[in-house]
Simulated assay, not measured.
Amino acid sequence: MRGLLKMTVSAVAHTFGHVPYRCLSGRPPAPLGGRILTNPKDIFHHNMWDHVQWSPEEMEKARQKAEENSREQIPLEEQVRYDRDANKYWDRFYDMHQNKFFKNRQWLFTEFPELLPQGCDTSRTPEGQEASVPACPELRKTLHSRTDSQQGDSPFPSHDVLRETQQHNAFPGQHASFRILEVGCGVGNSVFPIINTIRGSDAFLYCFDFSSRAIQLVREHPDYDPTVCHAFVHDICDDVAVFPFPQGSLDVIAVVFVLSSIHPERIQRVVNRLAGYLKHGGIILFRDYGRYDLAQLRFKKGQCLSENFYTRQDGTCVYFFMKDEIHRLFTNAGLEEVQNLEDRRIQVNRGKKVVMHRVWMQSKYRKPLSTPGC
C-alpha cells in the first residue's frame, strides 16, 4: 500500500512531459496551476505540484489496488441504509466537525471565474458594504409567518410554502440580474467567499444542502447575508422537492465535491434536473474526485458499495469519476462542453517525506443559447 501512495524521486522525473492546459471558451489556453516540478530534487520544497503525468506502471498499480479493494462488496441488503440515512450521516458529520473540517475555497475564482458577474472585483474586501440587490420583505414575511405556524421551531420553509410563493411570482433574489446556485453547500466553504465578493453587486447566491445541521451553521455564520444569499434545506435526489426559484433562472450552478456523494445510478437524473434551471447560455461548474485518487486507494476491503463507489467509516459515501463518463453525464443533459479535464497533482508531506498522487476532475458545461430545431 505504501508503495502505491509514495513516489520515489526518480519516478517523479518521468511524470513531466506534456503539460495539459485548460480550454476556456473565447480565451487563450491557461495552465491549471503554475507550480511545475522541473527538478526532482526540489520535490520537498513545496506541498503541491501541478500537471503530473503518471507512468504506465503507476497507473496499473493504482488500477490493481482499486480492483482489490472493490472485490469484496457490502451486501445489497446492508447498502440500503447508506442511501436511506444519508442525511443523518451528514448531520452527524457536521455536528461533530461544525465548520472546522474544511477550509474556505479561496481557489474558486481562479479556477471558476464564471462564478462572478462581469466587472466584479475579487481583489476588493467587500465586508461591510451594503448590497445593491434589494431584499423581498413581502416574501420574507410570508416565509417566516408560514414557517413559524406550520413547522414549529424549524427555521426553514416547507415545500408547500416555496411552491405558493413561486405561484405568486415572488422568490428570493428575483430582482438580481445574475443568479448563482451552489449545490451541496455544506457549512459554506464556497458560500462565504462568494458572498463577500458579490456583496454590492447585482448578483444573488442560492445554496442548499440536505443536511439541516449544515444549513443551520451557514445561516448562523456572521458573514451570512440574506440580502445576497438564500440558504435552504433540499435533497437534490428528490424529484418532487421544489426549488425556491423558477426553471431557466440561473446563470451559474456550482457542483463542487457533491455528485460523488450520490449513488451512481441517480447522478444522471440529478444533472438533468439541474440543467433545467439554467438560463440559455448559463454554465455548470463541476469539480470532484477522479479515478485512482489517493482517497480511493486508501479504502480497505469491505467498504465498497459498487464499482468505484465506497462508504467511509462515518457512513458518508464517495464515488470516483472518469473523464469520459463526466462528458456523457452533462452532454446527455443537453449541455455543451467548455472544459473537461483531469487535474493530476503531487501532494507532499514535507515533514514525513511522503509523496502522494491526487486526482480531481474539473469540468464546465454550458446550456446552448438556443435549442436545436427552434
Rank of each mutant, 00 (worst) to 15 (best):
L4V: 04
T8W: 00
V9C: 08
S10M: 06
T15D: 01
G17N: 07
P20L: 00
P28L: 13
P31N: 03
L32F: 15
G34T: 04
L37D: 00
N39K: 09
K41S: 13
K41R: 11
I43H: 09
F44K: 04
H45V: 10
V52N: 08
Q53D: 14
E57D: 14
M59Q: 12
E60S: 05
R63P: 09
K65C: 15
N69H: 10
S70H: 09
S70I: 04
R71F: 04
I74P: 02
P75C: 05
Q79R: 09
R84E: 15
R84W: 14
D85F: 02
A86E: 06
A86H: 08
K88R: 14
D91P: 03
Y94W: 05
Q98T: 11
K100A: 15
F102Q: 11
W107L: 01
W107Y: 14
F112S: 08
P113N: 07
L115K: 00
Q118V: 07
D121G: 04
T122Q: 13
T122M: 09
S123C: 12
S123I: 02
R124W: 11
P126C: 13
E127G: 10
G128E: 01
G128R: 02
S132W: 08
V133H: 06
P134F: 09
L139P: 00
L139Y: 01
L143A: 03
T147D: 06
D148F: 13
S149G: 02
P157F: 02
S158L: 03
H159D: 15
D160Y: 08
N169T: 06
N169C: 12
A170K: 03
G173C: 00
H175W: 15
F178M: 03
I180R: 07
L181N: 09
C185I: 03
C185F: 05
V187Y: 15
I194L: 09
G200A: 11
G200K: 06
Y206I: 00
F208T: 00
D209F: 01
F210G: 08
F210S: 08
S211H: 05
A214D: 01
Q216T: 00
Q216H: 05
L217K: 03
V218N: 02
H221V: 04
H221G: 06
D223C: 08
Y224V: 02
T227A: 15
H230A: 01
I236E: 13
C237H: 04
C237R: 10
D239I: 07
V240A: 12
A241W: 10
F243C: 03
L250K: 02
V252W: 06
I262D: 03
P264L: 01
E265L: 13
I267T: 13
V270N: 05
V270M: 03
H280C: 12
H280S: 14
L285E: 00
D288F: 00
Y289I: 02
A295V: 05
L297E: 12
R298G: 12
R298M: 13
Q303H: 15
L305S: 04
S306E: 11
Y310K: 04
R312Q: 11
V318C: 14
D324C: 07
E325P: 01
E337L: 11
E342F: 03
R345I: 06
R345K: 11
V348D: 13
G351L: 07
V354S: 15
M356Y: 13
M356S: 15
H357S: 15
M361Y: 05
R366Q: 09
L369S: 11
L369M: 06
